[in-house]
Amino acid sequence: MVFTTRAGGVSSSPYGSFNLGDHVGDDPEAVRANRRRLAEVTGVAPENFVWMEQLHTNTVTVVDGPRPEPVEATDAVVTTTPGLALCVLVADCVPVLLSDHGAGVAAAVHAGRVGARNGIVRKTVETMVEQGARPGNIQALLGPAAAGESYEVPGGMAADVEKHLPGSRTRTRAGTDGVDIRAGLVRQLMGLGVTHIDADPRDTVTDGDFFSYRRDGQTGRQAGVIWLTGVGSDGTD
């Protein structure tokens, strides 16, 4: 499992420097160079990276081989195929990486406010179980994302998210209504029987090491990446 930062790439401002998103207006050649660098660092062949056309859906797609183009209209990918690097792009949304390394099942999830509210993580866990995973054996890693202290939303929206994702409603540092999607997802995962959970507490809005759409508007995307190196082993080493 790997989470990138904005450091170490070739993109120019406002995408400086390790932007991995090819849909944000950056020079395509710079993005390709950054993705090649990611492949070199992880040791996974560039053609084995699986990207998504993330649209804030609750659609989960099972993949069993390389995809030359991003998987259409999906916000989670699940695989049992070793060597496929599943990627999620974010700039405030929660990147969620999941693996049952005993069963050889892995997933990458784009959990923005809308997708999380509509059950994208729950549906991903259910899909992993269909592929042979057991909730008690799933390891979950939630990456850097907008913290509740920085994620201001209207009161009605906070209440709606809380209704569908309990534990997410909070107050911002300014004392206004907010949502903490990571907190809600941790509670949801535990309710699903997933108890091996690590949540990176870093706030992309306030931490300049990360891209943040809420902070900067036009900006790049960092990635969470997970891959299976073989049956009974995940990509965490």
Results as ranks from 00 to 15, higher is better:
Val2Leu: 15
Phe3Gln: 06
Thr5Leu: 02
Pro14Cys: 10
Pro14Trp: 06
Tyr15Ile: 09
Val24Met: 12
Gly25Lys: 06
Asp27Asn: 08
Pro28Val: 09
Arg32Ala: 13
Asn34Ser: 10
Glu40Tyr: 11
Val41Gln: 09
Val41Cys: 08
Pro46His: 05
Pro46Asp: 07
Phe49Ile: 07
Phe49Met: 12
Trp51Asp: 15
Leu55Asn: 11
Gly65Thr: 04
Pro68Ser: 07
Val71Glu: 02
Ala73Val: 03
Thr74Lys: 07
Val77Gln: 13
Val88Phe: 08
Asp92Thr: 08
Cys93Pro: 14
Val96Asn: 01
Leu97Arg: 00
Leu97Tyr: 06
Gly104Leu: 05
His110Arg: 13
His110Gln: 12
Gly115Cys: 05
Gly115Trp: 02
Ala116Pro: 04
Arg117Gln: 13
Gly119His: 08
Arg122Ala: 05
Thr124Ser: 09
Val125Gln: 10
Val129Asn: 14
Pro135Thr: 12
Gly136Gln: 15
Leu142Lys: 05
Gly143Arg: 04
Ala146Cys: 03
Ser150Arg: 02
Ser150His: 00
Val153Phe: 09
Asp160Phe: 03
Val161Gln: 04
Glu162Gln: 14
Glu162Met: 06
His164Gly: 02
Gly167Trp: 02
Ser168His: 06
Thr176Cys: 01
Val179Thr: 11
Ile181His: 03
Leu189Ala: 10
Met190Ala: 15
Asp198Pro: 00
Asp200Thr: 08
Phe211Ile: 12
Arg221Pro: 01
Ala223Phe: 00
Thr236Val: 11
Asp237Arg: 14
